[in-house]
């Protein structure tokens, strides 16, 4: 016997006059291997044609579908209903600007983060189309990739206490990006530049280290390691001053 699921969904359309936030309930029969992506689309096609949410890859790769599922920030597309109780509460990710119902504006936040940390390789060297590529150790390539796997879903920010207090705080995702670039021998930024970037309250000192982010990251990024790597690097820079 399949279960009957009750979805309690946060509804609010800021573009509709006189709309106010509320929670609406929808019911649905559970099918085998149902995930929240399929469930929400079915609801939209059959019960709530105006329901707003974001999916792109539906494969846990693009980071579009972060939302609060029964109080936990996670990717909706890779959440199976069989892992949840019969009542499923869906809320948009907090902290980001609400666009409507379950849809939030993560894109703008991440673009600003990229601007703040200057998320590109800083190098004086011009690209020479005729030259063989610079060599790199495969271990280093793998290490960079490890941090590069962040999909900008925003779950770590939704669970972070610091970012609620300091909106400028770069969050786990921002610090992880910095760690990724610090690890990259192609980025020629010097100690002083890194120091200025991370040694502030919006940088690594803002973090209170409760590791809510590490716990929720759907990509299992080793955020703990990244933070301690950055802290170690900072103290080294301080010592050498």
């Amino acid at each position: 016997m399949g279960r009957t699921l009750t979805f309690k969904i946060f509804r609010y359309n800021p573009n509709k006059d006189n709309d106010s936030p509320q929670v609406e309930s929808y019911q649905m029969e559970e099918t085998q291997r149902l995930n929240v992506f399929t469930a929400l689309n079915t609801l939209r096609e059959t019960q709530a044609s105006d329901l707003m949410f974001d999916f792109v890859c539906r494969a846990g790769i693009c980071g579009s579908c972060g939302m609060m599922i029964n109080g936990r920030p996670t990717l909706a597309c890779r959440t199976l209903t069989s892992d949840l109780p019969e009542t499923i509460e869906l809320y948009p990710l907090p902290f980001f600007k609400l666009l409507g119902d379950l849809s939030v504006d993560t894109g703008i936040w991440f673009r600003e983060m990229a601007e703040k940390v200057e998320s590109w390789i800083h190098t004086q060297e011009e690209f020479d189309p005729q030259a063989t590529e610079e060599r790199m150790d495969n271990d280093i390539a793998n290490k960079i990739y490890e941090a590069e796997r962040c999909i900008e879903c925003g779950c770590c920010l939704a669970g972070c206490a610091t970012v609620q207090v300091y909106p400028d705080f770069l969050g786990a995702a921002g610090l992880n990006r910095i760690g990724r670039l610090m690890n990259d021998p192609r980025d020629q930024r010097g100690d002083q530049e890194w120091f200025e970037l991370v040694s502030t309250e919006s940088g690594v000192f803002g973090c209170i280290g409760m590791m809510a982010c590490d716990d929720v990251c759907p990509k299992d990024l080793p955020l703990l390691e990244v933070f301690s790597y950055i802290r170690r690097k900072l103290s080294k820079i301080e010592l050498s001053k």
């Binding site: 792109v56 890859c57 693009c62 579009s64 894109g107 703008i108 991440f110 999909i151 900008e152």
Partner: peptide
């Protein structure tokens, strides 16, 4: 969608 969510990322 935000650029990094484009299908190329998949």
């Amino acid at each position: 969608v935000p650029p990094r969510r484009s299908h190329s990322s998949a």
